[in-house]
Amino acid sequence: MQKSRFWVVGGEYTSCDCESLVQGTERVVGPFESRAEAESTWRLLSEDHRPQAQVRFTIAQEPPAILSA
């Protein structure tokens, strides 16, 4: 059985288009063994930065193949 891991990634973007991160603001948190754990952290980070319109975080799932290589 292959397991996936989850990461919370994001930071401050140069505009509300969320295409380019401001250098030095990148954040990668994880890995998490379950999506629920990642969602909990994502909610905390998102709430902490709510007043900052250009700060965004998302959950990334690591492909299972990486873990079995």
Rank of each mutant, 00 (worst) to 15 (best):
Ser34Phe: 09
Val29Gln: 01
Arg50Cys: 04
Met1Trp: 10
Ser34Gly: 10
Ser40Asp: 11
Leu21Asp: 02
Tyr13Gln: 04
Leu21Met: 07
Ser15Val: 10
Gln23Asp: 07
Arg35His: 13
Gln54Ser: 12
Cys16Gly: 07
Gln2Asn: 07
Glu47Thr: 15
Ala38Thr: 03
Val9Leu: 13
Arg50Asp: 05
Thr14Trp: 01
Val22Phe: 03
Glu37Ala: 11
Ser34Asp: 10
Met1Gly: 14
Ala36Ile: 08
His49Thr: 14
Gln54Leu: 04
Leu44Gln: 15
Gln23Glu: 07
Phe32Trp: 04
Ser68Asn: 06
Thr41Leu: 08
Asp48Gly: 05
Asp17Glu: 14
Thr41Ile: 13
Ser20Ala: 12
Tyr13Met: 05
Gln23Val: 01
Ile59Gly: 06
Ser34Val: 10
Thr25Ile: 03
Glu33Trp: 08
Thr58Val: 08
Glu39Gln: 14
Pro31Asp: 09
Glu39Asp: 13
Ala53Trp: 04
Gly24Thr: 03
Thr25Tyr: 02
Gln54Asn: 15
Arg50Pro: 01
Gly24His: 02
Arg56Thr: 03
Pro64Leu: 11
Gln52Ile: 03
Ser40Ala: 14
Ala53Met: 04
Glu26Cys: 05
Ser4Met: 06
Gln23Ser: 07
Ala38Tyr: 00
Glu37Gln: 14
Glu19Pro: 02
Phe6Gln: 02
Cys16Phe: 08
Ser46Val: 03
Thr41Lys: 12
Arg35Trp: 10
Glu33Ala: 10
Ser4Arg: 07
Ser4Glu: 09
Trp42His: 06
Arg27Pro: 00
Ala38Pro: 00
Pro51Glu: 06
Arg35Leu: 15
Val9Gln: 13
Trp7Gly: 02
Phe6Met: 07
Ala36Thr: 12
Val28Ile: 12
Thr58Ser: 11
Gly10Phe: 00
Gln2Arg: 09
Thr14Leu: 12
Thr25Pro: 01
Arg5Leu: 12
Leu45Trp: 05
Val22Thr: 06
His49Val: 06
His49Trp: 08
Ala60Cys: 13
Gly11Trp: 00
Pro51Trp: 06
Cys18Pro: 00
Asp48His: 11
Gln23Ile: 03
Ala36Met: 15
Leu44Ile: 14
Val8Ser: 04
Arg5Gln: 12
Pro64Cys: 11
Leu45Arg: 03
Cys18Phe: 15
